[in-house]
Every structure is written in structure tokens, then in C-alpha cells.
Computed example of a mutant assay.
Amino acid sequence: MPELTYPEVGATAGALPDGYRHVRIRRTIGRGRDAFERAGDDLLRGEAQKRAGVDISLSQVPLRVGTTVRMRLPLGFLAFSAPCRVVWAERTAERAGFAYGTLPRHPLRGEERFELRLLPTGDVCFSITAFSAPGRWFTRLGAPLVRVVQTRMIRRYLDALVEHSPEERSRDER
């Protein structure tokens, strides 16, 4: 089994390590237990990535520690392989999420954490925490473009789990 490409495994759970680009973003995506359960199911099936336009295959569903995540990221006429391994996964009554770390051949090196929380107010919050640095020659060379693409993908991940009204869900299922 290939080794992760960074030493700070699990750091998205706390203080982010120096020497990387940091991302911490949070968004309210819905309200109530049903919205939380639906989003949790989707998140642990890789739906945030799929709905964001990533071609993804998972070695296990739902995601759990040790799951291999193979993504293919389209960028114009190019596509990049982005293999990862899940290093943390949890599902409780108020929290659902996972974090994956980069494997060899990923364009970056680092970790990304996707976490849902059902707050006492009833709001369902989706947060993404990440640290990353270029992992290949072309991501070092194209670092400014990589930051733009990464920011765009994180926004797409956040949008992917937004709760839709019952009418919108019904229309989507047709």
C-alpha cells in the first residue's frame, strides 16, 4: 500500500502545519435532522466530489479509515489523477465526515477534511479544512493557477451538499 506523501497526518483536526497553503471554510447547507442525515449519507458516499464534477472511485462505501479514493480531475483538455487515502472518518448523531491524505502521483501533497455538524440551533454546517503544497513539478510551476482551481473546487464541494427544498428534490428525481 503506497505511503502518504506528507508527515502531518491528522493535522486538519487541529492546528494546521507551517509550510502549506491553509484553507478553513464553513457554510450552513440546511436545517434539521433529516437534512443532516441526508448530507451525511451523501458525504460518506463521495457525492460532494461527484457533484463537483470529479470522476471518483472508492475502494469502500461508506468511506472509512483506509479507503482508497481515486479521483480524476478534469481541467480543460487535461485531466489529473489525484489518489488519496482516508485517514479519519466518523459518523455520530451530530457529526459526520472524513479526511483524506494525498498519495504518490497526486498533484499536491497534504490533507483535506470534510465535516458536517448538526448544531443545537438545528443548522447543518459543512466545513472544509485543508493544508496543501505542490507535489509535482507542474503544480510547483503553475502554483498561482493551482490555487485558483483549488479554491473553485472547494466552493463546488460546499455547493454540492446544499439542502434543496422538497419541491426541488422531487424535480431533480424526475
Rank of each mutant, 00 (worst) to 15 (best):
P144A: 08
V86W: 01
E167F: 10
D123P: 06
P120L: 08
L103V: 06
G110Y: 00
R155F: 08
A130Q: 01
L158D: 05
Q150A: 03
P74I: 06
V86I: 15
T28C: 09
F98I: 02
R109S: 09
L43P: 04
L73W: 10
L43M: 07
E94P: 00
F114Q: 06
G142R: 11
S132V: 04
G19E: 07
V9K: 12
E173R: 15
E8D: 15
A39T: 05
R169I: 05
E168K: 13
G142Y: 08
A15P: 06
P74T: 14
R26N: 03
A48Q: 10
R174S: 11
V9W: 03
V86L: 06
P62W: 07
M1L: 11
S127V: 03
L145F: 14
G122A: 09
A160N: 08
R27A: 12
R113Q: 08
E3C: 04
L108M: 10
L118M: 11
R109Q: 13
F131D: 00
G14P: 02
D41R: 15
V9F: 04
E173S: 14
R169G: 00
R51S: 11
A13N: 09
V87Q: 06
W88L: 12
C125H: 06
T121R: 13
L116E: 04
T92N: 09
G101D: 04
T5S: 11
T68W: 07
P83V: 08
E112V: 02
F36Q: 07
V65L: 06
G110W: 04
R72W: 05
P62N: 07
T92F: 12
R95Y: 06
I154F: 13
L118Y: 06
V86D: 01
F131L: 07
D123G: 05
H164W: 06
V86N: 00
